[in-house]
């Protein structure tokens, strides 16, 4: 095939939270663009469903719970050399500030902020990310350009990721590893399925988005995959908003 800087041919990419939503769409798109993909999450059944939709035979499942050091270390030990890391696993617990407590805060911070930081740290320390590699964090416009009530723990966790990403993107230049983040707006995935927000409220929210609809996981995956590819070779430390204009 002719020159294609967007191709992921020959690359190996690890995607966390690949059993659902944005992570699943990202794993599928990576494989379509030629990458071998390592997918991880807790739910093995759903991971098997993702793997069944991947192209090529070089893909791998690692079942791991990222809510503790044990799971993070297990994952680090089960991967070899990577060209791409997508820190995507995340949760969203909605609680007005007066109901925030240490347990809920620690849970959100652990999965959305501490585990991506520790996973990245561990992989760098063990030199598992090759020169020319790329790391993409899935943050959110929440807490950056928009915030919705009840979302303080989530916004804090996503802001943490942005600060971390901005710093290590500079540190990792010497290792020729790029770091960036995507900031999705409201995307149609099961993340809100706990039901604190009704369907009518989601529809009302969609009406506020200039494009008048929620995003699809595939539309976030496209941004992630661009940042992983060599087409983004001069992009590091940046935040790509993908929100149908919601921040405008």
């Amino acid at each position: 095939m002719s020159y294609n800087p967007f191709s992921l041919e020959g690359k190996t990419v690890l995607v966390t939270g690949a059993s659902s939503g944005i992570g699943k769409a990202t794993a599928i798109l990576c494989s379509k663009l030629g990458a071998s993909v390592i997918i991880t999450a807790r739910n093995e059944e759903r991971l098997k469903d993702t793997v069944s939709q991947l192209e090529g035979n070089n893909n791998k499942i690692v079942v791991a719970d990222l809510s503790g050091t044990e799971g993070i270390n297990q994952l680090i030990n089960e991967v070899n050399e990577l060209d791409g890391l997508v820190n995507n696993a995340g949760i969203n617990k909605i609680l007005p500030i007066q109901f925030v407590d240490e347990h809920e805060l620690m849970n959100t911070m652990q999965i959305n902020a501490l585990s991506p930081i520790l996973l990245t740290q561990g992989l760098i320390k063990k030199k598992r990310i090759r020169k020319g590699g790329a790391i993409v964090f899935v943050s959110s416009i929440a807490g950056h350009t928009r915030s919705s009530v009840g979302n303080s723990m989530y916004c804090a966790s996503k802001g943490t990721i942005t600060g971390f990403m901005k710093c290590i993107s500079k540190e990792l230049v010497i290792k020729k590893i790029r770091c960036n983040e995507v900031l999705p707006g409201q995307v149609d995935t099961p993340i809100m399925s706990q039901g604190a927000v009704t369907e009518e409220q989601m529809t009302a929210l969609a009406a506020h988005i200039p494009m008048k609809r929620l995003g699809n996981p595939e539309e976030i995956a496209a941004g992630i995959v661009f940042l992983l590819s060599d087409a983004a070779s001069y992009i590091t430390g940046s935040s790509l908003i993908i929100d149908g204009g919601l921040s405008l």
Partner: peptide, 17 residues
Amino acid sequence: LSIIAMADEEFDVALKG
């Protein structure tokens, strides 16, 4: 959202929107 959180805290019940 506060009512939902209160139901969880005081009654251990997960109310939906």
